[in-house]
Design a protein around this nucleic acid. Structure first.
Lengths: 147, 147
DNA sequence: CAATTACATGCATGTGCATGCATTTATAAG
DNA sequence: CTTATAAATGCATGCACATGCATGTAATTG
């Protein structure tokens, strides 16, 4: 037989499609209602739930899933663009590090954006497709594991 | 209470992390063993499972999850770089369209890459984290739906 | 003083958006 | 039915921009 069963791959593709679709919807709504890209939101969100609402760049890197340079520039752009939402200041214990902190204004903005985010997410995840993709993927995975 | 329960968001973030992680692993192995990016592979894979192993650009667009221009360039680069793997030729029924077809050489390359892809996928999906992320997400979703 | 760590930056590249060009399809007039 | 014209479709390309990699700089550690 030339063609192998591609359940695993199809499951993965389905999951990826769902992920892409939901992310696109999130991006679109965040952009429309709050002038935020998805990564912008992630940045603000992770800051908002961090202790003292501040984090070093290195910590954000892993959370957002971007490279070190990308995070550095994400914060830079943000600071330049939307003045007043976040603020960088050196860390006294280690002056190589730089804390990125949320201002009160930023905190309010995050709260509003988070409401949108949660709303869109709830709607998107109630779609039939998620269920479909996940069950396809898990079934194929287990089947592959048995082999 | 100021902080709301963020189960939905955390679930989504967990799923996104898993997706990113697996995609990175796939990209890395495909690059190392076959000199293919993840999108390169998707392009070849979708062609390989298509009837007559050929597709028009527009069809690839939705499958790969890229914009029209991105697909146009993806194919262009591919044609230029790895001569002989794929081949474009006009479509007789509609001369605006262009078929992108897999050559025999390309077909062999895809087959090898697909084996790698499936292998990496099987390993990555057996990780505990997937289960974790999915159950977290689904539980939070259902909870949100009840509300 | 050497090695490491945290962040910034030059550079190449892939991407999306807007637009352009060629072709097809739809509409209308004669 | 034929022809003229407008709208839509499929792909390519100029442009701006976000990203990753490699590297540079400053600070910390051993």
């Amino acid at each position: 037989m030339k063609e192998q069963p591609n359940g695993l791959i199809d499951g993965w593709l389905a999951l990826t499609q769902v992920q892409l679709g939901v992310a696109a919807k999130l991006e679109q709504e965040l952009q429309a209602r709050h002038r935020l890209s998805l990564n912008d939101f992630y940045l603000l969100y992770f800051l908002s739930v961090a202790p003292n609402k501040k984090l070093r760049l290195q910590q954000l890197e892993g959370m957002i899933g971007l490279s070190q340079s990308a995070v550095s520039r994400l914060v830079s752009r943000f600071e330049a663009k939307t003045c007043g939402v976040l603020q960088r200041h050196a860390c006294d214990e280690d002056r190589r590090s730089i804390y990125t902190a949320l201002t009160e204004l930023g905190d309010a903005k995050v709260e509003a954006a988070t409401a949108t985010f949660r709303e869109v997410l709830a709607e998107a995840l109630s779609e039939r497709e998620l269920e479909q993709a996940l069950s396809t993927l898990l079934a194929a995975r287990d089947e592959a594991a048995d082999k």
